[in-house]
Design a protein around this nucleic acid. Structure first.
Lengths: 190, 190
DNA sequence: AGATAATAGTATCGATTCGATACTATTTTA
DNA sequence: TAAAATAGTATCGAATCGATACTATTATCT
């Protein structure tokens, strides 16, 4: 008689997602949820992914919509655009100091922080893992990118020098800092 | 070095929520996510909760916004308004046949169905439980309603006749069908 | 080489959300 | 009976969002 687990999970995710959006909207200084999403993404993505197309894939929106949101953030001084040196079509996005501050500020809203602290540590970990698995599964199925961490990608290569790595796709060198960012070209290592 | 579990969970919920919204938008015939939310809510709420105020609390929006969305659904013929018999301020909302069909159709999008089926049954159950707990915790803290199932409410009373119950708040009789719907006045039984 | 296709991004349109504010009507409370 | 609370609507401006059309650049194919 009760709802099947799948539909229930979906409904819960939708409601919790709405709450996160609503809480964020209430507390963020005039910033829409999508703006916080974009700033957050730009703060953790690597140099292959900091483009309007990368943001578009990450958010699952259309590129027209994303272009508008990026325009708003640029006009308000949170991000800056700079042309790619090799591909004349590509634009890179970077956070201004003002934008960087906000991308950190978007911490955990009070209501959630409290509710999460009610879970015991094992449960938090389980929840995080199950949600990750679910997200990865959805993305695999819908052809979406996984946006995994560089270091876990099948193209990631260790170099002989400590702290020096290489991307097998672009063949470019990668620093330790690069290796912990997320990438739109990420494919999970087998 | 890695993200704390709490921030990670929040980010996962936000991303999954966005995906649900996006998938729903793509597949639903011109219906916005909030419209599906409203239709879904009306299909499972009881007669004390099928009002604009009930929808407002459930969605966490403002009443002005909700009033507009309800207006759209009414104009498009998915729901119908009828005045309350006792309180002249109150309006009840009901699904038209057209609306009822859509509230069922909004089932689980393909990508999610597949990804959820990858979890083994125990994991699904765990995930559903953890998300429920989280939602309840957030609502308790933010003063929001829990919208629990009538039968689990502290005001729910069994009658001597089988299949007949009573609401201790309104003192009205409740059928078996009533007892499995969600209510905005719900308070978890101790 | 040169035509064609694919890709990155922008511009514009209409419908809609959303919060804020103000407003009406009804009911409750003091 | 007057004041306050409640339910709901109306209106405004800013922004999202998808759809479509468009420009510019790069890749591909013949």
């Amino acid at each position: 008689m009760s709802m099947p687990d799948n539909a229930r999970i979906l409904s819960l995710i939708e409601r919790l997602g709405n709450l996160v959006r609503a809480e964020g909207r209430a507390s963020g200084a005039g910033l829409e949820p999508v703006h916080r999403d974009i700033l957050g993404y730009l703060s953790i993505c690597n140099r292959y992914s900091d483009t309007p197309a990368g943001v578009t894939e990450y958010l699952g929106a259309t590129k027209g919509t994303t272009s508008q949101s990026i325009g708003v953030l640029e006009r308000k001084g949170y991000i800056k655009k700079s042309p790619d040196k090799e591909d004349g079509r590509v634009v890179h996005l970077s956070l201004t100091p003002k934008g960087r501050k906000l991308s950190y500020a978007g911490a955990v809203p009070d209501g959630f922080a409290g509710a999460l602290s009610d879970l015991n540590p094992g449960e938090s970990e389980t929840l995080a893992r199950l949600l990750s698995d679910l997200l990865a599964g959805v993305q695999r199925r819908t052809g979406g990118r996984t946006f995994g961490v560089c270091r876990t990608c099948r193209f990631f290569r260790e170099n002989s020098l400590p702290g020096s790595h290489q991307c097998g796709l672009t063949l470019e060198p990668l620093s330790d800092g690069d290796s912990i960012k997320i990438c739109r070209e990420h494919e999970t290592a087998a």
